[in-house]
């Protein structure tokens, strides 16, 4: 008896599933990553809203895994695949061609693939995400503007320049600041601090003590941004001493924004990247729309809009 029920259940699920559009989705990071989690949440909600059969895979931010996962997705008769663009146009070109020839839709998120996009827009190839470089510029611009910085003022940038794509954001910040005639002190985030942000306390203290005239501090790291309230207390500086801007909303960052220790947050709105990629693929599949190009990177959060956003961060949406 049990066996029969089981068989019927399997049969039913395959029949219904075959009705649905089957989308494979690369969440980019690791199963645990905060960012990948929000992207995945967006994709899941879109799948629920549209009745899509969604399969999420994770690539630990590794280009070779992204390629391999994509190969597997094509092989397992997907209707559409949302890929992360990190491996680049060249690495993807043959695979994407094959997929599209086989009638599988492809779109990219987080990192753009300009060549493929221009070639296959009509086939539904689009892009949802932010650009590291431009979002770095945007945050720096916004911070300079709000803070009324002048030529000759000093800013600190704490970033990951040495990492290939990721470093573009710090590069954007530095270039924008220098265009405005601001003197930039750049500090590279060490591997240890990258993983355990609390270790940055003494580096921050050392810098601030050495360069007390600094006006603006730009932090290109979500975990470090979240620690700024704590660091400020350790270094015995008050909330208004420096204008501090960073990225990525986490509960601690929200707290820091509420208490003015962090003044500005740039938000790439990863939930939207997940949600809109799935929406775009589903619509293109059903109705043959062409690919969309959407920049989600213009989100800014400060202590004026934080009360709306804070509850959503807890749910893994912001």
């Amino acid at each position: 008896m049990k066996k029969i029920i089981f068989l019927v259940a399997i049969l039913a699920s395959t029949i219904f599933a075959s009705d649905k559009i089957k989308i494979y989705f690369d969440a980019g990071g690791s199963v645990g990553g905060n960012y990948a989690n929000i992207v995945a949440n967006g994709a899941k909600m879109a799948a629920k809203d549209l009745g899509v059969d969604l399969r999420i895979y994770y690539s630990d931010w590794s280009s070779s895994k992204m390629i391999n996962n994509f190969k597997k997705a094509i092989a397992s008769n997907a209707d559409a695949v949302a890929i992360m663009g990190h491996p680049g146009d060249n690495a993807f070109s043959l695979l994407v061609k094959k997929a599209i020839d086989d009638g599988i839709l492809v779109t990219t998120l987080d990192t753009p693939l300009p060549k493929l996009q221009s070639k296959y827009t009509a086939n539904g190839f689009g892009y949802v995400g932010t650009n590291n470089y431009t979002s770095g510029i945007a945050l720096a611009k916004e911070a300079v503007l709000r803070n009324k910085l002048k030529k000759g003022d000093i800013a600190m940038v704490w970033g990951l320049l040495s990492q290939p794509t990721r470093g573009l954001r710090a590069k954007g910040m530095i270039e924008e600041l220098e265009r405005d005639g601001i003197k930039v002190n750049y500090i590279e985030i060490s591997n240890e601090i990258n993983k355990d942000p609390v270790l940055g306390a003494s580096v921050f203290t050392a810098y601030i003590t050495k360069n007390p005239k600094t006006k603006l501090i730009l932090i290109d790291h979500g975990g470090l941004t979240a620690q700024m309230e704590n660091f400020s207390k350790i270094a015995n500086i008050s909330a208004d001493d420096y204008y501090i801007a960073g990225y990525s909303l986490s509960p601690a960052t929200i707290h820091a924004v509420e208490n003015n220790y962090v003044d500005l947050i740039g938000d790439g709105q990863p939930f939207l990247q997940g949600y809109l990629s799935v929406v775009q693929l589903a619509l293109s599949k059903r109705y043959g729309f062409s690919g969309l190009n959407i920049d989600t990177g213009a989100g800014f959060i400060d202590n004026k809009n934080i009360n709306i956003i804070a509850p959503l961060a807890k749910k893994g949406i912001r």
């Binding site: 240890e192 601090i193 993983k195 270790l199 975990g223 620690q227 704590n230 509960p251 601690a252």
Partner: peptide, 16 residues
């Protein structure tokens, strides 16, 4: 100390 928990907590200490 951090009043916070991060999924990558601990990883930075191996080398140190």
């Amino acid at each position: 100390e951090m009043a916070n928990w991060w999924p990558t907590n601990g990883e930075g200490y191996l080398l140190l």
